[in-house]
Design a protein around this nucleic acid. Structure first.
Lengths: 201, 201
DNA sequence: GTCCTAAGTAAGCGACACTCACTTCAAGTC
DNA sequence: GACTTGAAGTGAGTGTCGCTTACTTAGGAC
């Protein structure tokens, strides 16, 4: 019977890789991107502190795996959000932005990780590719909105501006920098304002 | 002879606090915000690894001192940039944005430090105050441009949008995320585009 | 000169990243 | 069913780090 007995503490873990990623995700979320340790992740998974190194070359590699998985989720969120509005509408663009901010807010540790990982990770084609995929969602919505191709430089320029604005808003929000304002910023009006102003004409 | 001989290694350093901050600034710049160690900073200053703790409570406090000094510099840069253009002009606003990006680009380690320091630093009124001062520069220029008071909610909203855009652009630039674009983004056109579009009407 | 105190030291603790030699065990191969 | 193999684990060890403690130095006030 090759079916694994439910609760026998097997010598071989069987699913360590996935469980380590989950543990790191939790740790990063609760203690920040550098508040996590490989040792603690191993402890949570119930293995020795040397075990993770059978699955990940080193600490940065493990972090990168978490970031990679997060970027997949981010793209999914944006696509789902866009799909709930008419293609080419301002609302679709705004919804993508809202999904981005929501992603940052509900997982600011991981969000910070994804965008703070560039120190020793210049050579990460996988992450770069996923970044491209994420921007692709914005680009497509922008293109549909102004009625041009995504290859059009004007479309790229506008999509990039929208990205920077939403990205900046996300970071300043999770950094609590928004309290320099005397009036609160409402996500929805923010998104509609920038969409309208950047995509106008 | 109380005059200190030029190269005598004095027991009392005399200027350790400042020198530590400088060393940390260098380390953060070359190895990233968490690629620095108190021990290494002490080594560079030529003192024992325990000496820094006579001047700074712990590692985060030391980092905060570096961030604080950097925020002063950032505000100075923005003010100088703004002063070189007519008060109330779009160019003044764009120049402030350019100064912000330049600051990020020439010191991306410290820039990342300033805006990634919010993990255990919620209770840092000094940093919060300096952040307010920095935003004040943007707010004043925006107010002058639209001809209203800085207390006006509309002005605050627009200034905030400008800030988020420039902030996002800065981060995405130093993170090398801009190569998802097939056409390069020119800082100057970027700044003028957002200034025009956000401050129009 | 004497005391006080800020500013340094050396030594040590626990935690960490990572390595190395070893062990376990599931899955072939015969 | 015994034999081999190799992926996935262990435990002990190294060097570094953050930080503390007890001690030392030296400059200034009196």
């Amino acid at each position: 019977m090759p079916a694994n007995a439910p609760s026998r503490p097997a010598y071989h873990h069987g699913d360590l890789r996935k469980q380590l990623i989950a543990a790191v995700r939790d740790l990063v979320e609760s203690h920040g991107p550098d508040g996590f340790s490989v040792a603690e992740a191993a402890r949570r998974a119930g293995v020795s502190s040397a075990a993770p190194y059978k699955h990940f070359k080193d600490r940065p590699t493990l972090l990168r795996a978490v970031a990679s998985e997060a970027m997949d989720r981010l793209r999914d969120c944006m696509e789902v959000a866009a799909a709930q509005h008419p293609r080419g509408s301002l609302e679709a663009v705004a919804a993508i932005g809202q999904a981005y901010v929501d992603f940052a807010r509900t997982g600011h540790g991981v969000f910070r990780l994804v965008f703070g990982l560039t120190e020793g990770h210049e050579d990460a084609p996988e992450l770069k590719e996923k970044g491209r995929a994420c921007f692709g969602v914005v680009l497509q919505a922008t293109a549909a909105c102004v009625g041009k191709s995504g290859f059009d430089p004007d479309v790229q320029h506008r999509a990039y501006i929208l990205w920077t604005a939403v990205h900046g808003h996300s970071f300043l929000t999770i950094d609590h920098k928004t309290d320099v304002l005397s009036t609160l910023v409402d996500d929805n009006t923010y998104m509609m304002t920038i969409s309208r102003r950047i995509l106008a004409e």
